[in-house]
Design a protein around this nucleic acid. Sequence first.
DNA 1: GATGCTTACGATACCCGTAAAGATA
DNA 2: TATCTTTACGGGTATCGTAAGCATC
Lengths: 306, 306
Amino acid sequence: MNFQQLRIVRETVRCNFNLTEVANALFTSQSGVSKHIKDLEEELGVELYIRKGKRLLGLTEPGKELVKVVEKILQETANLKSIAQNYTSQGVGELAIATTHTQARYSLPSIISQFRQRYPAVHLKLYQSSPGEIVQLLTRGEVDIGIATEGLEGIADVAVFPFYRWRHTVVVPKGHPLTRSKSPDLHQIGAYPIITYHAGFTGRARVERAFNQAGITPDICMSALDADVIKSYVELELGIGIIAPMAFDPDRDTGLEALETGQLFEENVTYLALKRGRVIRDYVYEFLQLCKADFNRSTVKAEIGL
Amino acid sequence: MNFQQLRIVRETVRCNFNLTEVANALFTSQSGVSKHIKDLEEELGVELYIRKGKRLLGLTEPGKELVKVVEKILQETANLKSIAQNYTSQGVGELAIATTHTQARYSLPSIISQFRQRYPAVHLKLYQSSPGEIVQLLTRGEVDIGIATEGLEGIADVAVFPFYRWRHTVVVPKGHPLTRSKSPDLHQIGAYPIITYHAGFTGRARVERAFNQAGITPDICMSALDADVIKSYVELELGIGIIAPMAFDPDRDTGLEALETGQLFEENVTYLALKRGRVIRDYVYEFLQLCKADFNRSTVKAEIGL
DNA sequence: GATGCTTACGATACCCGTAAAGATA
DNA sequence: TATCTTTACGGGTATCGTAAGCATC
């Protein structure tokens, strides 16, 4: 048994059992991949894969159980390297963050600029992704931190920590009729076509829920991934926007106004997420503390199982 | 990085950093050991060992941290094999138990004979050891189960389960004066020279505690590892014996009598111990259930962290 | 016919073990 | 001096990649 064999097994799952793809992902040859799998199965005395002729279709029962252990082993070998680097290269390395547009554009810049000042030798890698992709990047161990408002909770290998809380706000073109009412309610808002986030992004579900509970079927005439796009179309008077408040800046967004919507919408929680069992570099803990001063290193460690 | 390197690192700790010994333990050459260590340190960029000239003396701080992870990795690779064998070779394999004389001789035979009937193809390996050795065998992963009354609690990587409870009994030569009193107390018993277990074995500490609390300094004229030896000397009238009740059989030990000592001594708990994180074969769970019918496989698994 | 897996084979690199030299107690 | 570690070097083996053959879709 060797590490290459284990890497290959892990990769087969990630590549949907396409060995050619596995070989490419691991920068090696198909033939080697094929042989390694055969060798490992022989050594363990178990067929790991369900086969149909020459094609692999999925994992057998023992295969499923074994892959879990294989992932643990590979995770721990990655941890060996992280631990070593924490000693040898303090403040040097990479910080990979996967997050949504909203965070990348509006909530992280100030934190990241602080972090860069403190750790100029840490290379920052910012993935901008959907919540689903963020989970995948996290569980694959390709990023250190995931940040999103949706889709991070309830994943077995992912630990989440509340980052901050917020409620959606309504933005309208300057001079829009709604600006005349002191604090418009959902019925008044629902009377206009609405532009907001795609389903599964940035608390979109909570926007819909608010209308549903008020018995209103809103006319969501457009949806977009990010507030920049939404704001552009609101300025073009195609509808009114419902966006995260972080995304509205009265100084910059001069063509728009934000309404006083109070608690019309449910509260959203934006989470920071870490992979359980993954050792992270010291500066990652520092980054977390920049996000939220009361982040305690030892409680974070306990939460992710270290 | 490869598994041999990790095995070597683990073994250096076990062999007190004597690389020659490591090489012998792993059936390889010193030179290879030396080189592997060097290579691994180079790859991780960290000195794992404190050196004095050419000799290794111990682990550095990063070394200590890394060895923990190395042990995890190697444990999980062993688990891979166990899991595979649970599928391929049901009821075939090895069951290694480390226990003290008392258990091996008196409490286990009936269980083991039942087990052998059920799993004739499982090779039994019975280590008879001191509690300290039992802990070592367990943590090194050389045995599946440890059984003892002493020294198993409070070890980080070892989970313990109460097996059964018992109190020491007093055995005397037939016709001994003490047999005349209905239920002798500690003062009466302490008047005679006593033969019992070595310190650290089979609840010896509780025997002493009982006398101490009664303000008596007993004359422990002999101590031995096991009840067979103790009983022999009691028969020779060198003293009276204080032994585990399992070790007295009125039919066989015809030269002796057991006194009615009621609750003179504190209760002892004999524990079954498993190594945390170690996957054990299905038949090991069956063995545990033979020991105690209410052993629940899933609670055991949870307790050992699987 | 295009894609994907296996087998065969040759080149390479890695790992091991012997042996010699140097260091430590 | 005896024990222990390092370094150097040669032999063997395992791994890798190319290429050909075959199965699957």
